[in-house]
């Protein structure tokens, strides 16, 4: 056996196999030969990779992901850090079954976090002038890294480690503007939960056929804003960006 089958003559089989690799192995696969590279670049493969552990897969995010840079980038920038983090946490209490440890299951919250981070990445990269913004102190990408502050008996609680630093730097009485007062209070009381963290990051998008991107934040329900101002106003701590981005613009939007 073995002489009758050559994988590169069976592209449908090859795609089925590559679809089941993880991100790292897919990067290796691209280096095998030209055909593998062409297949590994295909965004639908990365789409599968991003959300294969989610059931049901998130709906209606395709246009947004494509508009913000594609699934490969989504995986590399946002899904991978979250996955790595979950891999560290989820095995607790599951050691008996190695299969479960290997497969990481996503909840809606991880999907939301990834997509939100992806949008942050996009705004920093495209609208704030590319690579430099990612490194500057006001970047929100630090949210990819997280510390577990879950009280005993709860799991999957995610807080960005930047949050804790922010919080400590300001002293107990002051609330970090980034993450909101309710979360801070709950954290101090040793009882916070994932939903609040997500709620702060959660934003909705609408991509028009003209290519224009509109954003709705959870705080400003039922109102659609052109992406840039609204997202920045919502996300960034006021002392970093208020003057630069012109809050007046946002105000006028809200009024009119």
């Amino acid at each position: 056996m073995g002489t009758n089958f050559f994988i590169n003559d069976n592209q449908d089989v090859l795609i089925e196999i590559l679809k089941r690799l993880d991100g790292r192995s897919l990067g290796v696969a691209a280096c095998v030969c030209r055909l593998w590279c062409a297949i590994a670049r295909n965004d639908s493969l990365w789409e599968h990779l991003c959300f294969r552990h989610v059931s049901p897969p998130p709906e209606g995010v395709r246009a947004v992901v494509l508009a913000l840079g594609g699934y490969r980038r989504l995986y590399m920038v946002c899904v991978r850090p979250v996955l790595n983090r979950l891999r560290k946490w989820r095995p607790i209490g599951m050691e008996s079954d190695s299969e479960i440890v290997k497969r990481v299951y996503w909840t809606r919250h991880e999907v939301e976090l990834s997509l939100s981070l992806f949008c942050v990445d996009y705004y920093e990269r495209v609208l704030l002038g590319g690579g430099d913004a990612g490194a500057c102190t006001s970047s929100l990408m630090f949210l990819c890294k997280a510390v577990n502050v879950a009280p005993k008996g709860l799991d999957s609680i995610i807080l960005p480690d930047g949050y804790l630093q922010e919080h400590r730097a300001r002293g107990k009485n002051e609330t970090p503007s980034l993450l909101g007062s309710s979360l801070a209070r709950r954290y101090v009381a040793g009882d916070c939960n994932l939903m609040i963290d997500m709620a702060i990051l959660s934003i909705s998008f609408r991509v028009l056929s003209t290519g224009e991107l509109y954003v709705m934040t959870r705080r400003h329900k039922e109102r659609w804003y052109p992406g840039k101002q609204a997202v920045l106003e919502y996300f960034l701590p006021s002392e970093f960006h208020c003057s630069e981005m012109g809050l007046a613009d946002v105000d006028s939007l809200q009024r009119g």
């Binding site: 089925e16 196999i17 089941r20 690799l21 290796v28 095998v32 030209r34």
Partner: peptide, 30 residues
């Protein structure tokens, strides 16, 4: 099909490009 593809994918995870080429009998065309 699903089981076989998953098995093959799991077994080539963490292999180098050279090892993958040997396993699949692929000549590098780069």
């Amino acid at each position: 099909m699903n089981m076989l593809c998953q098995t093959i994918a799991d077994r080539i995870k963490d292999k180098s490009p050279e090892a993958v080429r040997k396993i699949f009998h692929i000549n590098c065309d780069y």
